[in-house]
Design a protein around this nucleic acid. Sequence first.
RNA 1: GGGGAGAUUCCCGAGUGGCUAAAGGGGGCAGACUGUAAAUCUGUUGGCGCAGCCUUCGAAGGUUCGAAUCCUUCUCUCCCCA
Length: 399
Amino acid sequence: MDFKDQINIIERGVSEIVPDGGLAAKLKKVSEEKRPLIVKLGADPSAPDIHLGHTVVLRKLRDFQRCGHKIFFLIGDFTGMIGDPTGKSKTRKPLSREEVELNAKTYEKQIFKILDPDKTEIVFNSSWNAPMRFEDVLKLTSKYTVAQMLERDDFSKRYHAGDGITITEFLYSLIQGYDSVVLKADVEVGGTDQKFNLLVGRSLQREYEIDPQICLMMPLLEGLDGVNKMSKSLGNYIGIDEPPNEMFGKVMSISDEMIIKYFTLLTDVPSKDIQKMEEDMKGGTNPRDIKVKLAKEIIKTYYPEEMAHQAEEEFNRVFAKKELPDEIPEYHVGEKEVWVIKLLTDSGLSTSNSEARRLIQGGGLYIDNERVQDDKLVIECRNGMIIKAGKRKFLKLKV
RNA sequence: GGGGAGAUUCCCGAGUGGCUAAAGGGGGCAGACUGUAAAUCUGUUGGCGCAGCCUUCGAAGGUUCGAAUCCUUCUCUCCCCA
């Protein structure tokens, strides 16, 4: 593949490349050396459940693989075992060897839904960090200055605001950067929030007389709320392991403004087609229809295409036509007569009686398509009775 | 080593003796509307078979008819000076 094609593929969706135009030079260099690019990605060992936000970067790695390059998927288990104090959040509890290994397995299973295993090598930074002697660490710390550290916006703000910064936090950046030295990375990929760390890697490589890596930053993907970065802790994510129906619904719940960004970062739809959709929407095409396309494209990357269609049908049935879903979980009731509130709580539709009461008072409970408004109601259960709590929770009773 | 600030419900953040299950915002949930689990608007947001009761304001004690609010001790966070 010639450089131009490679660059086109690689630059899609990218937020920034440092240095500007450095990619072409690197490509030229490695092709002269008759070897693939070594592309590094550092992963947090404590969050092994991958969601679409993570896939933005993974898909970029896959782009590199399609151009014939090699990926080092680095699991930062060394840092993980110490416990990462990043930011203001309380120190995370250190991960044990077993946990790290378990998480690594999960990673493997999930990343290969996107990456090509033949061109991927999973490495652990503990394998070279753990044996380091204190003097090695000192040598490393001598390569970077406090002033350089304070260039990082986050550090600088916290420093001037008088918030604490631990030395460990400084060291984390160095450790990550040192990984690039060890791997002799040509390119490091990361989110825009990782820019500083990636640049540290670049500087350190220069200090250790290695040709400095290209830093390639991908935009952060906003989650379902359209505002915050997609993350598990905020609950605004779409997990890569989620069933198609769930994915479909969640994609449909993103705000209209996010559609184009999701297309660019999460699908293989060609850029010119995406542009056309953007124009269509401006021209009055219903964003809903474009979003349906998006949802199907995303599902297609993780499941057979057929399931994407099924998810669409299901969605239309349940939400557009307000009919019943295809499959409704069954709940076995012990007695014939049950107080509604108890039923809701026991079956898990609500977490407490009070919540169940609120649901009823808010008009969100339907039994056999009839709204229930009496929270004292005692139901006479029949086989096949349908309980609908809110928009998307259904239950079929079994006596 | 010395001095100071603070810890409130899922989160942020008001509240300095009763009217406080605790303002406001965020988030969540529900309803209406719709083109969708978009947007917007409205309601709701500790628990309990709930016109009542019980438990919450870092922890433990104490003062008081009555405490998130006052006192004592403790734990933890942060800042300033050295």
